[in-house]
Design a protein around this nucleic acid. Structure first.
Lengths: 359, 359
DNA sequence: GTGAAAGCGCTAACAC
DNA sequence: GTGTTAGCGCTTTCAC
């Protein structure tokens, strides 16, 4: 049988009341050290385990936070969750984890579960599919502390932790320019997500800084997948003026681009430069190794939890916490082989081939 | 203000009692369809959210399970958690996630949190550091359903889900033999973990099946890291009789081997065959693409949760569940470029080079 | 088919 | 410094 020692059992054995036992266990200031010691010893002796359920019901605090991610299988989110859980645990919080599989339906289901579980706060990375944010709105109405990480939305005024997507994209694009690439394309992601929109903005800004005209035909409306990258290459090679570099919105898209270019026997780097975003763990091991923008995933998780703790403290009217609306992490540039110096243009390469054929 | 609609509010508005409302919400058979409909409509109208805390306190069931993993940052565990959460969610269960960072201290802390949260069951992958299993023993004493996955311990009689490491290693080694490789080495992992020991056993068994003598000098005592793989190559090339293939205990070691061989300009496959274990996500994207043994991570998670559900049902005396003690998943062979047919021996290659130099 | 009432185990006023 | 008391919101016997 599973044990069921309660504070009443401890109280009875010590000739105290359950109230005193409860206070002793919670280190209430007005309980004498002697009884505290007595109670705690008896508690361990009886292998008492505090019933958090009952405690939560009475106190209204669960010390549990809900975490919503698209999928734990994606390295990026596993890493963020790692950061979140570490910090949560050391703050005495437990985390309830739900995955959306990028669908709004599961996102709604997760929020309902959290509401029902009376979590003290929620950390979420919005699903790709989500366009209607009313379920998040509902959380705000109910005054439930909420922090977005990575995937955010600006319509809702939700505090968030993100990497500086704009800056990362800007630097990535600038790096391609400085490496000598002249016609730089972009494989973009779903534009309803601010994350991806910011990266597009950064891309454009870098071009503009160097007085390069932003051409709409060089922006392929893609997705974060290998397939999207491949499709982008197929598309780019239908253009009359083929690009010689790609800044992909994410590493998997970048990988697709590399695969597509390899199929076409394009030399990377040299003929073609590629840079991605996310610094997924395969990047440094493929060939050419993929240049990318590191998003400080673990730190992102820690910061997100920290911000949520502040919101929770604020809600409980504990003062002294200046509320930050947004934490922006520095993108860490990881320059590898795929984006290093341009040596020869595709046109030149083609001409060479033509010459070779003629000779 | 956060809302606090209770069943009493619904009851009052409908001139019913809270008991009836509770039953209606839970689809109790003796409640008329009419009232059920009425109650449910009113519930959504008032945006009622069932208080799971109160429900759990009263019923003794939390519909929550605790999950213990070394780290969510490790792709393997992220993947298993993905499987666990998917299945849990579709069974109406929430998961509480704790990481051990491979330490016994955090493992104990996690179990205490789970006990206190009154989880209905626990899924755990043992920390590398753990040698004393008394905290897991305590769970058994308290009759809390427990299932191990991947990292198991044979002393405790805990139901578990693992991949057949022996068989996977056997098939991997056999594949190298059948591909024409003659002198097959092994980069092994920490032998105190049963997982890695089983893989060594499988390697030896395959050699023996083909009457190949197991040579101790071909077994490099390594680890699951790129560095270990590189070091293994350095070592193998000091041997008077250099091997022509490697079965590495894990993909990162295999990757190190590939990198080491590339540095030495060894052609793969052909001159040298390599196969790993784990089917990490970089494997199919590197060149040569890495042959490996897939551990069915997502399936492992699903099976672990399924087994736990059975244990929970058993505890509640719902009959008809034959209890399985151990689920062993089939290793799925992923043959890619790195292990395909041998075409030329290193000796031959050297001779060719020598000849070329002479001419 | 529904009502009445007890209580899950804890916390937190309010006493003194 | 400790006792008393009243619930938190739900489920669940026992009625009828």
């Amino acid at each position: 049988m599973s044990q069921k020692i309660t504070i009443h059992d401890i109280a009875r054995e010590l000739n105290l009341t359950s109230g005193t036992v409860s206070r002793a266990l919670n280190d209430h200031p007005r309980i004498s050290d002697a009884t505290k010691k007595l109670v705690k010893e008896k508690a361990t002796e009886l292998k008492y385990q505090r019933n958090k359920i009952a405690s939560s019901l009475r106190s209204g605090k669960t010390h549990t936070i809900g975490v919503i991610i698209p999928s734990a299988q994606m390295n990026f989110f596993g890493s963020v969750v790692h950061g979140i859980e570490m910090m949560a645990s050391s703050n005495g919080y437990s985390i309830l984890l739900y995955q959306t599989e990028e669908t709004a339906a599961l996102e709604i289901k997760a929020i309902e579960a959290f509401l029902s579980a009376r979590v003290d706060g929620i950390l979420a990375s919005v699903a790709k599919e989500t366009v209607d944010f009313s379920h998040y709105n509902e959380l705000q109405k109910r005054n439930i502390p909420l922090v977005f990480f990575d995937r955010t939305n600006d319509e809702l005024k939700v505090p968030s932790v993100v990497v500086d997507d704009y800056k990362g994209a800007f630097l990535a694009t600038e790096h391609l320019i400085q490496s000598g690439y002249l016609r730089i394309a972009h494989v973009s992601g779903p534009q309803q997500l601010k994350t991806f929109n910011e990266r597009l903005r950064g891309y454009k800004a870098a071009l503009e800084k160097y007085s390069i005209v932003v051409e709409q035909e060089l922006i392929y409306q893609g997705d974060i997948s290998i397939e999207a990258g491949r499709a982008a290459v197929d598309y780019f090679f239908t253009l009359s003026d083929i690009p010689d570099a790609v800044f992909a919105v994410e590493d998997y898209s970048a990988l697709g681009v590399i695969k597509g270019l390899k199929d076409r026997k394009i030399r990377m780097p040299g003929e073609f430069g590629v840079i991605g975003f996310a610094n997924e763990n395969f990047g440094e091991h493929i060939s050419p190794s993929l240049s990318s923008v590191d998003q400080q995933t673990v730190q992102m998780g820690k910061e997100a939890l920290g911000l949520l703790m502040e919101l929770i403290a604020l809600k409980e009217n504990k003062p002294g916490y200046p509320l930050r609306e947004k934490i922006v992490l520095e993108p860490l540039m990881q320059f590898r082989q795929s984006s290093t110096g341009k040596t020869i243009s595709i046109k030149q390469a083609k001409n060479n081939t033509t010459l070779a054929n003629l000779s």
